[in-house]
């Protein structure tokens, strides 16, 4: 048959490839940038670089380095650091914003280590706020949203910006 002969010229199978971009990492990276840029940190940590640290999520770290590293947070250039495991996080260094991909006891340990510092801990865990995170990513209507423990942030001396508050689910 003519069609069959000529049809061999065209692919009979699937040709398109799935884009393997980590879509959640892209969205979360932008949220983290807004958390950095739109909250108010105490004046004691408003000099030098702005430190954003990622624990346990290489693709989120890569996305942040690729698109946001060295962008200005006020007058502070954004420095992004990544660690694979919770125990790798240096306890003696200051971090403005820490994202921790793991939940449960490990998240609680990070929160405990950061207690008393003006660090905003961000998590992506069903019980993130209970474990000590200030901001926790949640799924809402198939979208990434976040919830905030504004009281905890205030205790740390960090004022959550209106823009950030207005988009929070609770």
């Amino acid at each position: 048959m003519a069609w069959v002969t000529c049809g061999l010229l065209m692919s009979q199978g699937t040709t398109s490839g799935l884009d393997e971009t980590d879509t959640r990492a892209v969205t979360k990276a932008n949220f983290l940038f807004h958390f950095a840029a739109s909250n108010e940190w105490p004046s004691s940590v408003k000099e030098g670089s702005f430190y954003l640290t990622v624990i346990g999520n290489n693709r989120l770290y890569d996305e942040l380095v690729d698109k946001y590293a060295m962008k200005m947070i006020g007058a502070q250039p954004l420095q992004v650091t990544g660690y694979s495991r919770v125990e790798d996080l240096p306890r003696d260094a200051f971090h403005h914003l820490v994202y921790c991909d793991v939940g449960g006891a490990e998240l609680k340990r990070v929160a405990s280590d950061l207690e008393g510092t003006p660090t905003v801990l961000v998590s992506d865990s069903p019980d993130g706020l209970e474990q000590g995170a200030v901001i926790n990513f949640v799924a809402s209507g198939n979208r990434i949203r976040y919830e905030i423990n504004a009281a905890d942030a205030a205790k740390k001396g960090v004022l959550i910006g209106n823009k950030i508050m207005s988009w929070a689910v609770k």
Partner: peptide, 25 residues
């Protein structure tokens, strides 16, 4: 069916990739 699904999905990712430091909330 597969190609339709991929085209829809990849187009969504394409929009997402345009997000950068200038993207507002």
């Amino acid at each position: 069916l597969y190609n339709l699904a991929i085209t829809l999905y990849n187009h969504g990712v394409r929009q997402l990739k345009r997000i950068n430091h200038e993207t507002s909330m």
